[in-house]
Design a protein around this nucleic acid. Sequence first.
DNA 1: ATATTTCATAGTGTATGCACTTATGCCAAA
DNA 2: TTTGGCATAAGTGCATACACTATGAAATAT
Lengths: 242, 242
Amino acid sequence: MPITETERDDVQTQIPFLLSRMMGLEDRAETTVGRMVIQLTRDLIENRIAAGEQLNSIDLARRFGLSRTPVREALVLLEKEGLIDVPPRRRPRAAWISPQRIAEVYELRAELYGLVARKAAQRISAPDLARLKHILSRMEQSHLLDDWSSYFWYNVLYHEHLASAVGNTTLKRSIDALGVMVLQLRNRNMRPLAHRKRSFADHARLTMAIEDGDDTLAAALSRTLVLAGLSRLKDEFPETGQ
Amino acid sequence: MPITETERDDVQTQIPFLLSRMMGLEDRAETTVGRMVIQLTRDLIENRIAAGEQLNSIDLARRFGLSRTPVREALVLLEKEGLIDVPPRRRPRAAWISPQRIAEVYELRAELYGLVARKAAQRISAPDLARLKHILSRMEQSHLLDDWSSYFWYNVLYHEHLASAVGNTTLKRSIDALGVMVLQLRNRNMRPLAHRKRSFADHARLTMAIEDGDDTLAAALSRTLVLAGLSRLKDEFPETGQ
DNA sequence: ATATTTCATAGTGTATGCACTTATGCCAAA
DNA sequence: TTTGGCATAAGTGCATACACTATGAAATAT
């Protein structure tokens, strides 16, 4: 059954909240600085600001209609998230992540996703599982419509929700921090149809494993899911370290 | 053999560098803001600023002989490290960590320390191992002298070095971020002689396991080490987690 | 041509000021 | 003696200003 326009746009409206949660900006979400951080994060993830590109506080202040003071605050926050580099006395640059570092992030994500999936399979609540299945169905719809952007964001939402569902704030924040650092790559990675196909199959099976309480399988699928992403990156950019 | 005054003070001089590395401030280490962050971090860890205490930017600016602008930047950095809370429009407060959260942090640290120890046992270099043993010997000296403060800092240094030695920056940054959040508790925890005694025995055995390349034992000891810390906290503050 | 120095321009780091919000202490009322 | 309300003090968030540093292009030397 085809989805309506409002449903298609649903995930778009959720993005700022999703990113706020992932970046620990819940409190600041309504502040000027918080909104600026979210907007710049989206620009970086969706590659409107390319890796390595210069970013100075004066232009940003003009762009957001603010002074440099709050802009600098936003830049500090973005640097702490690993999205930009701010060398002292030099102009900020959109971060460039080395292949080596990409591999490290993905491998640690695989480990932590494994932990989350294990715990989720052991003790997810019925409403959380229902919500997870709902997000999965949206992933399927986006996949069938070849809407890779929606698919990507629903995918991010799926994992963010799964991590919330296990009720361990610390584990969630650690995973989210790693996830945000490579969101731009995860985005690129969802474009080819074949990747989405496999991704969806894995998520569908993972959801079942969680529902069945099969923690070992859930953990293994989660790890595989992440490592598959890494190996696709390696195919696309062979220089991505071992 | 007794250690000299300079040797005793050695770890004290290293603290700012150690904290810089753990907080990802290497670049900013020489900046005004960086120094302020390190100083405030020490005040928080060593409990000169108590959990929940108010911290306003005007007093801090006076104290450091600066204006509020760089002070606010330092406060943003400290908030991102989880050391203070800065609610919008409200005064910053030294963070209070719930027992639940303490348990989460320790459990995740146990997991990640396990990973580090496993990798270290598999591929630590000879110079790194030598340095580790050196730090261990300093821990022993401090222990024998009943110098709990030095013992504590050498202990932190031991783990920081071990994490460096495996050559995974991402894993190290994740562990360090968690470690800094609970440094104040780790500090308290090293005061009772009995705790130091057990801690030293565990570290001595861990070092041997790493030297022997026994990755399974090294991982198990590392996890136990952290979880023992948690269980001591639970004894002292019975309200700490389930 | 290529490398080196010079210098104007652009950008950073910090201080200061001000409008607005939150905290505090006092007084009145129960 | 406590409670509620209000005036005042204290603090935050942002804008602006300015000294200092990096950057890049022209001018000079190789």
